[in-house]
């Protein structure tokens, strides 16, 4: 579980986050949504301590992240996996070496054990057999999966994904969402996902946080998204006339059932 307390962040004159207090739950995908420039990436980077907040606190269970010294912070980070928006795979290493890197750095496993674990996580993301290829030699969707595999290799307790399905076709995005969803539930991970993909919201949105202009303006789950009459939420999620019609139909159906 991760909890934030009145997080504020400014870059010079630019107040990007204006006081975010919320909770991200264990064993559930937690979604941060909001339009471009709303501050999603900044919030995510604050949650893992890549940025320091101007004021406010971030708690990992009961640990105050920003009170930790560098060594203790690294201790926490070993329990964290992250999928970057641009994947951040090391391009001079093969896929296998990329995934092995955290184990090389932090475990005393033998090469054989490490290779076995690499195969295991690659299989988990349905990408077995691409160990010897370089990241530049596989497609964008495959890179995402490799990124997830690398994030998962040390069995993290916390997983952060910055727009895991941007730039992917709808079918592949849904596969990636399901993959993250399964891993989260199966391993009881606290997963935080930045997205503006409505398929993700309606597919895996168990806890959704909507940011607008640096404020948290709505929080709930995917069923509540449908029901809520909150203006900002409806404007953001059901932006097109087509989606608005779909929502009305869905609501009608649901009420007919009751």
């Amino acid at each position: 579980m991760i909890r934030t307390e009145d997080i504020k962040k400014s870059f010079g004159e630019n107040d990007v986050l204006k006081g975010i207090s919320t909770e991200f739950y264990a064993g559930k995908p937690n979604l941060i949504i909001g339009s471009s420039g709303a501050g999603k990436t900044v919030l995510l980077k604050l949650l893992i301590g890549l940025f320091k907040p101007t004021s406010g606190k971030v708690y990992y269970d009961d640990t105050d992240l920003f009170s930790l010294d560098d060594d203790a912070l690294r201790e926490v980070r070993m329990k964290v996996g992250m999928l970057f928006q641009g994947n951040a795979l090391f391009d001079s290493m093969t896929v296998g070496e990329n995934i092995r890197f955290p184990m090389d750095m932090f475990t005393n496993k033998s090469l054989g054990e490490k290779e076995k674990r690499v195969d295991e996580v690659l299989e988990m993301v349905n990408m077995e057999g691409i160990n010897d290829r370089f990241p530049s030699e596989v497609s964008g969707g495959m890179q995402k999966r490799v990124g997830i595999a690398r994030a998962m290799v040390l069995e993290p307790k916390y997983l952060f994904c910055d727009e895991p399905n941007s730039g992917l076709d709808p079918k592949t995005s849904i596969l990636i969402d399901e993959l993250i969803n399964d891993l989260t539930h199966h391993n009881k991970i606290t997963t935080v996902i930045n997205t503006h993909d409505m398929n993700s919201v309606m597919g895996i949105g168990e806890n959704i946080v909507l940011l607008k202009d640096g404020n948290l303006v709505w929080q709930g789950n995917k069923n509540e998204v449908l029901e809520s009459d909150e203006q900002v939420l409806q404007e953001f999620i059901f932006a097109s006339p087509f989606l608005r019609r779909l929502r009305e139909d869905a609501l009608k159906q649901r009420h007919a059932h009751e």
Binding site: I48, R74, R77, M78, V80, F84, F90, P102, M105, F106
Partner: peptide
């Protein structure tokens, strides 16, 4: 950043 998050100094 990716290495930092893994916990690498």
């Amino acid at each position: 950043d990716a290495m930092e998050i893994m916990g690498v100094n």
